[in-house]
Every structure is written in structure tokens, then in C-alpha cells.
């Protein structure tokens, strides 16, 4: 087995506040293989974006990584010096943000922003960097790139701007791209195109993707593996097909039930009752226990850690703890 490109172990991100410490990401572990697309899915506030920010070292104060380690190609990148981190950002890990309308500096031409980024990381001439930038814009599907490169961000539509953002994230040829809800702010009709562009351009360059989204449909089409996050923890991780067809954690079961199926019967989509707890009020034991249909006593007391249930699959749920202590079903 090859060495993972990115390896996250026991990552914990905390926010000290006046009313105690909030744990936004709690003991999260996962690997990303070279060239792989890992989907990270969960509700708002589940810690998806925070995990991405932690990897690239951009957690906003007063948040901090309280425990765990992050390794990129075997080398630790958490807690390294700001100047060392700058050689990781953009160069080895690219990042795509949610809103293309606000990701680009409105006062600079697209060409300036791309060329500046390329020349920060690669020792090439201005003319060469510009040639590359045009090639890249062409690649992400901006028509007439040679002319449009000198336009300002406001002269592009939302979808086009997100293509520019993708070009910017990839311009120094990183090995990993963290895409934080890259299509959430876009029209539905454009979303699929952007995902296609991103997937193709990363595949061409052999870059892995960590795709953060709350849209299971996007994950199903794009990712190789998926990690389901709930209240700052990984509750289930495994290959996308397996997780979609045969979700194990009751929360993932609910999530998958919420994907509409084409051509299926017109039955109602399932809904998970209640909402995710606030970070300041995470229940004891399993964080999902108040909403779980299959909750039993142990869930309310003891916190489950990820348990391997099949090759490449882990589920953090006492239902799968051996010897199997089958809980009584409420419903």
C-alpha cells in the first residue's frame, strides 16, 4: 500500500470562549491517498470547514489546534513556522473557497492575481508565468482566456469566477486541493460544470481533492471515499458506493435517506428529527444519541470511537461493537 498523501490523526480544534472551551473538531482522523477524492460531508457546524482550515493552517483566532497531528507526505505541517507554512499553502495544498464572488480581490486584474501567486512559489519569469496563467484559464474553461485574463473579477459571472478561483488554487501545481463547498454559492445549473472542471483538472495533474460539502449528490458523483462528520467527529468513513448503499451509522443512514432518487417510488424523503447540538451543549456519550432511533443505554454514557466494520470502513457507533450488543429499536 502506498503512503498516504495527507494523514490526519486525532485532530482537535478548540475555541476558548468566556463560557468555556468549545471543541469544533474532536479527535478526527483520516487519510487521503495521492490522486484520491475524499468527500467530507455533514451539516453546517459539523466541523467540515474547520478541519480544512486546520490542515492549511488558517484557523482564525482564538481557535487553535489543541491535539493531534497533520502530516503531508509524512512530514508534519501543523504547528510549523509561518514562513514554512507559506511554502505549503498554495504550493503543496491549494484551497478553493465557497463564495467566488468574495474570494477574488476586486481591485486587481485576474492576471495580476494568478501571476503573483505563480511567482510566489515558482522561480519563473513574468512572461512565462503569464503564459502559464493563460493556459490554466483555458484549461478551466474560460473562453478567450488570452483576452479575458486582463479583466477584473467583477467582469466575470459567478461560475466563471469560480473557474478563476480553481485556476488560482491550482496554479502552483499543489498535490492536494481542499475545496470548501465550492459550488454552494452557485446556480444549480453551473454546479455540475464546476465540479467537472475541478475533477478533471485535478485528475490531469494528479492532485488529490478533499471535497467539503453538505451535498451528498456531489459526493456521490465525485468522491472515491467519504467521511461523514457530526458535531466535530467522524461518525463514518468508507468508500462512497458502500456508504451510500449500505450506511451503517444511524446518522449516515438518515443522510443517505435524504438523497432523492431518480426513477424511484415517490415515497417521502426521510428526515432526521431534531437538529445538531450546539458546540456548547454536546450531550454526553455519543453526540447523536438524542436524535438516534436506535439509541440504547451505553450511547448516553460512553463515547464511541471509530470501529472497523469492513475493509476500509469505520463507524463510530456502539451498534457495531463486538460482541454485538444489539440495542432495542425504538421505532
Amino acid at each position: 500500500m502506498t503512503e498516504p498523501l495527507l494523514s490526519v490523526r486525532g485532530l482537535t480544534v478548540e475555541f476558548p470562549t468566556r463560557r468555556g472551551v468549545l471543541t469544533a473538531v474532536n479527535n478526527v482522523s483520516f487519510d487521503i491517498m495521492p490522486g484520491e477524492v475524499l468527500g467530507v460531508v455533514g451539516e453546517s457546524g459539523a466541523g467540515k470547514s474547520m478541519t480544512g482550515s486546520a490542515i492549511i493552517g488558517l484557523i482564525e483566532r482564538p481557535g487553535r489546534i489543541a491535539a493531534g497531528e497533520i502530516r503531508l507526505q509524512g512530514e508534519r505541517i501543523d504547528g510549523i513556522s509561518p514562513s514554512a507554512m507559506r511554502t505549503v499553502r498554495g504550493r503543496r495544498i491549494g484551497m478553493i473557497f465557497q463564495d467566488p464572488l468574495t474570494s477574488l480581490n476586486p481591485l486587481y486584474r485576474i492576471s495580476d492575481q494568478i501571476v503573483e501567486t505563480i511567482r510566489t512559489h515558482l522561480p519563473i519569469s513574468l512572461a512565462e508565468a503569464r503564459r502559464r496563467a493563460i493556459g490554466l484559464l483555458d484549461d478551466v474553461g474560460i473562453p478567450d482566456a488570452e483576452r479575458r485574463i486582463d479583466d477584473y473579477p467583477h467582469q466575470f459571472s459567478g461560475g466563471m469566477r469560480q473557474r478563476v478561483v480553481i485556476a488560482l488554487a491550482l496554479c502552483a501545481e499543489p498535490d492536494l486541493v481542499i475545496a470548501d463547498e465550492p459550488t454552494t454559492a452557485l446556480d444549480v445549473s453551473v454546479q455540475a460544470q464546476i465540479i467537472d472542471v475541478m475533477k478533471r483538472i485535478c485528475a490531469d495533474r494528479g492532485a488529490a481533492i478533499m471535497l467539503i460539502t453538505h451535498d451528498m449528490g456531489v459526493i456521490a458523483e465525485t468522491a472515491n471515499r467519504v467521511a461523514v462528520l457530526y458535531a466535530g467527529r467522524v461518525v463514518e468513513i468508507g468508500p462512497v458506493r458502500d456508504v451510500i448503499k449500505d450506511a451503517r451509522h444511524p446518522y449516515s443512514v438518515g443522510l443517505m435517506g435524504a438523497i432523492p432518487k431518480l426513477g424511484g417510488d415517490a415515497e417521502r424523503l426521510t428526515q432526521i428529527p431534531g437538529s445538531m447540538p450546539r458546540l456548547s451543549a454536546i450531550p454526553q456519550g455519543c453526540a447523536f444519541n438524542p436524535r438516534c432511533e436506535r439509541v440504547f443505554d451505553r450511547c448516553r454514557v460512553e463515547r464511541p470511537e471509530p470501529i472497523a466494520v469492513a475493509p476500509q470502513r469505520e463507524v463510530a457507533c456502539w451498534l457495531y461493537d463486538e460482541p454485538r450488543s444489539d440495542g432495542r429499536a425504538h421505532a
Partner: peptide, 11 residues
Amino acid sequence: EYIRFARARGL
């Protein structure tokens, strides 16, 4: 966001 994005690009 654009300052965050600029940071994320390693400027």
C-alpha cells in the same frame, strides 16, 4: 474572504 484566499495561496 479574498484576504483569506490570498493567505491560502501562500502569498
